[in-house]
Amino acid sequence: MSQVAVLIEKLNAQIQSGEQVDSFIDALQMFVDHREDEEIVGLEDKLAYVGRSDEIKSALKKKELFQKKLMALEPFSSAQKIFAIFLSRNSRGV
């Protein structure tokens, strides 16, 4: 069974039992914090910089949907681990 599949099972168990945490796990915190080393800040500016301004409206909508999902599942450590796995893969271009 894959790491994500195991985490999904654990997430289901945490939701059923009400087992929650009150902070972000370290692996996800790096994606939440503002990083001082970033030259370009903000989704719109980043898309404009790479010539994809035509995608700003769609990207903002997707960002909002992701943020809502993250907020809903934030109390569950296994959900945070799942998000961290996919964000890490995305940031590496995998």
Rank of each mutant, 00 (worst) to 15 (best):
K61D: 07
R35P: 01
L43W: 02
V50E: 05
R35D: 07
A59K: 03
E36I: 15
K46W: 00
L60T: 08
L43E: 07
R35Y: 00
D54C: 06
E44P: 00
V50S: 02
D37L: 12
D54F: 02
R52P: 01
K62L: 14
K63H: 13
K63M: 08
R52Q: 12
I56A: 06
D45S: 08
H34P: 04
S58C: 11
E55D: 15
E39F: 03
V50I: 15
L60E: 10
V41L: 02
H34I: 13
E39H: 04
S58P: 01
E44H: 01
Y49P: 00
D54W: 06
L60R: 09
H34Q: 14
V32A: 14
K63A: 12
R52V: 03
E39D: 05
R52W: 00
S58K: 12
K46T: 07
L43P: 01
E36L: 14
K46A: 11
V50G: 04
L47V: 08
R52Y: 00
V32F: 10
S53Y: 02
I40D: 02
E38F: 03
S53W: 02
K62F: 05
S58G: 04
I56Q: 06
A59R: 02
K63V: 04
E38P: 01
S53V: 12
D33W: 03
K61T: 14
S58L: 14
E55P: 02
V32M: 15
E44G: 03
K62C: 08
K46Y: 00
E44Q: 07
E55A: 15
D54L: 09
K57F: 02
K61V: 10
I56M: 12
I56N: 08
G51A: 03
H34D: 14
D37E: 14
D54H: 10
D45R: 11
E44R: 08
R52N: 08
D37F: 07
G51T: 11
V32D: 14
H34A: 14
E38D: 07
S53C: 07
L47Y: 00
R35W: 04
A48V: 11
I40C: 05
